[in-house]
Simulated assay, not measured.
Amino acid sequence: MIPHANVHLADLLDRRANGHEPASEAVLAALFEGGVFVPVTDAGSVIFLPDEEQPPTLLGFTDAALGAQLLPEAAGMVHCDVAQLRDILEKTGVAVLAVRSGNGQAIFPEQVLRDWSTYGPGAEMKLDWSTDPLAVALRDALVRRVREFPAVRSVWVAQVRWRANDEEHLMLHVAVDEDLPSASADRLMEVLLGEVKLGRGHTKVGMLALNTTTHADAIAQLDRHGLDTVRHDAGSGQVQVISREYDDPSAASADGAAPQPPAKRRWFGRS
């Protein structure tokens, strides 16, 4: 018996095509609650979308008939649940999962899928401002190096706590003006972790890249969390920092300039 189509996910993706951007949490929850249909060959091997410059993309469809219509060269469509998707991710090194509905689509970066497949359907994380010295060091390293990455627009530094098991770690959300998976965000993380050394037993640091257009709602939500934020204007080369650390009017700017006039939240420009 062929499993039912993932109607909920299809509805969310179709609404994206109509200009309505559902919260990424809702799309991910629907994906992991209902699964997707993955194309396979006659031998039962998964079919990937090849790319000469990037790791392959795993294809998924919200129902089997749609998959057969859009990818007629596939021998069949196999329904994959959470465990099966996670198994494919771990064994193949896939960069992203691309899911199609009748009128919409979504691309899920590999790291997002790994986190959700680890913590399960409906997993929620709580984002908080962090005074961890590592978080401060990452913020300061961002101020020094972000100009090297023109596609990076904003970076938020957060302490993440997963509500399912109270596990905590640091996470950088990186807003980019380029398609995902983001080479700029990946390279930025490499640079930062090359400058900021993690001590033995220290909390891990994760990264989630967001597209400034596709994930506009999620980006707006991040701005409401009061996190340390580094913004980059590639045109002017200006870098600005928002931090509760600077809410004290006597606090100096990140580059040693005179304090700014009192304001609800202070921005510190760097030219």
Rank of each mutant, 00 (worst) to 15 (best):
S250V: 09
H8G: 03
D115H: 12
G44F: 09
R144W: 09
A23E: 15
G76W: 11
A95M: 04
V155Y: 07
L127W: 01
E73K: 12
D87S: 15
R265K: 01
L113R: 00
T131I: 08
A183L: 13
K91T: 15
H8M: 01
D166S: 09
T92Q: 12
M207I: 07
L13V: 10
V78K: 12
I107M: 14
T229C: 09
A209N: 00
D228S: 12
L28A: 08
R16G: 02
D63V: 03
P181K: 13
L97G: 05
L85I: 06
D233T: 09
A17S: 02
V40G: 03
A164Y: 06
L113G: 00
R114Q: 06
V155K: 02
P22E: 08
V230E: 10
L188W: 02
G120Q: 11
R15C: 11
V78S: 12
A65C: 07
D115W: 13
E33P: 03
E167Q: 05
N165T: 13
V99W: 03
L188M: 04
T118M: 08
Q159C: 12
V241P: 06
A218V: 06
I219W: 03
L85D: 04
S130C: 10
S182H: 06
A64F: 07
S154E: 15
T118C: 07
L97M: 03
V196M: 14
A234G: 10
V112T: 11
L113C: 00
A95F: 00
R100E: 06
V152Y: 06
A106V: 00
V239C: 04
P259H: 03
L227Q: 06
F268E: 15
D217M: 05
T213C: 11
F61T: 00
P55H: 09
H202G: 15
N165A: 07
E167G: 00
